[in-house]
Design a protein around this nucleic acid. Structure first.
Lengths: 104, 104
DNA sequence: TTTATTGTTCCAGTTTTTTAGTACAATAGG
DNA sequence: CCTATTGTACTAAAAAACTGGAACAATAAA
């Protein structure tokens, strides 16, 4: 497993971020990354098959919403909250603090 | 032309709003509605064909991002900023104030 | 070295979205 | 009534996205 692509902060684009955040399953993932500093993929395996999860995490990564730290065979995901806050102030907090019943 | 569907504020969902905002052409429309209180469709006819414009405005409407007021044969569009601000505080201002070069 | 764990890549099938042409509907004005 | 204006509805084709199975790659552990 080679290092996955993650855009530099300067390459993050609003339309891509919004797109990544617009899928209910990805929004679910993002919500669950809200509290945890880092989260292992395994947590989501109950929600969807491995390959589907990989796909959604890839979309989040390539949009610049999430980043990953690899340790052995495990991948720890987290949100790029600080960088996103610099680029689009208020966006992530608006998404993360949305009332749960208004998400999907 | 009958009255187009627009969701009540209580039926607006975050994933739908984010999805509506994630398309570059729709983001362009939304940006241009930022300043104007209301805007006639005709403005965008240089950017895309009529039927394509109708489609994108429909997505924005049905997601609850935009609303329309009909006067004769003319349709005046505007953003539902206040309602969205109530539901997802900070979201629209984050989108509307994004640096132009970071949008697409 | 063998086996288990963790996650990716590849692939195909299905669904959704985007785009735009053409025809149609509604109103306004002469 | 006839015509222009404004925008929708319908339609179809192309592009993109979502889903998940199966095979593969990399590390860890026995």
């Amino acid at each position: 497993m080679r290092k996955p692509y993650q855009p530099a902060a300067s390459d993050i684009r609003l339309s891509a971020v919004l797109y990544a955040l617009s899928d209910p399953r990805r929004l679910q993932i993002v919500q669950s990354l809200k509290d945890q500093a880092e989260q292992n993929c395994a947590v989501y395996h109950e929600l969807m098959p491995k390959s589907t999860l990989t796909h959604h995490l890839k979309v989040l990564r390539e949009a610049g919403v999430a980043k990953v730290r690899i340790e052995g065979t495990q991948h720890f995901y987290s949100l790029r909250t600080e960088e996103l806050d610099q680029l689009f102030p208020g966006l992530m907090s608006a998404v993360l603090n949305a009332p749960p019943d208004l998400i999907e």
